[in-house]
């Protein structure tokens, strides 16, 4: 697994709930059906209020942004695994937020779709959509193009599970299940 993710950020605020990440009208799509998985990606973060740019531009299959930067309580609301799946399917590889809702965090780990990294610093006020950053998962830092570096909370054991590709892949790799 590449431990450095370099790319542009998409910035949102506090309490971005799962309806904003993937609106309920798209929950007729089943994440385990490959073409519907891809379709979920095109709708990721499409529930954000008007005024936000699209994470995935109209007609595109993938997001030009690979890291979402958020405030507090990212992913609150529903238990729908479609939320981390849609972000992962869009090509987002990590979220850097001040804090997470419990089920969203767990679903990120269980699916292995993306890294939910916590930042003690409120980066959503310091960065703007389109800024280029480097996220170093090994060192636990986020560095801006201007060279400012911010420490992040270690992901701990959750990182190993996501590195392996999710709960089942990790459990097999570590011999917990056959």
């Amino acid at each position: 697994m590449a431990q450095r993710i370099r790319g542009n950020v998409f910035v949102v605020g506090d309490n971005i709930d799962t309806d904003q990440i993937i609106p309920a009208q798209y929950l007729n799509l089943v994440p385990t059906i490959p073409e519907e998985y891809a379709k979920l990606g095109t709708y990721a973060l499409s529930g954000l209020p008007d005024g936000y740019p699209r994470l995935v531009p109209e007609g595109a299959a993938k997001s030009p942004y690979v890291i979402v930067v958020a405030g507090r309580n990212f992913g609150c609301g529903s238990s729908r695994e479609h939320a981390p799946v849609s972000l992962g399917a869009a090509g987002v590889r990590a979220v850097v937020a001040e804090s997470y809702a419990r089920i969203f965090f767990r679903n990120c780990m269980a699916t292995g779709e993306l890294y939910p990294v916590e930042s003690p610093k409120r980066l959503c006020d310091l960065l703007k959509t389109g800024d280029e950053v480097t996220l170093d998962l090994e060192a636990g830092t986020l560095t801006t193009a201007a060279g400012a570096t911010y420490p992040l909370q270690p992901l701990g054991d959750a990182k190993d599970v996501i590195d392996a590709g999710g709960l089942f892949a990790f459990a097999r790799k570590s011999g917990m299940i056959r």
């Binding site: 994440p31 385990t32 238990s79 729908r80 695994e81 981390p84 089920i103 767990r106 679903n107 269980a110 699916t111 999710g166 709960l167 089942f168 299940i177």
Partner: peptide
């Protein structure tokens, strides 16, 4: 408590 599909599949099997 509420869980996602992957955790639920794990519970379903084990």
């Amino acid at each position: 408590t509420g869980i996602g599909n992957t955790d639920a599949a794990f519970v379903m099997g084990t």
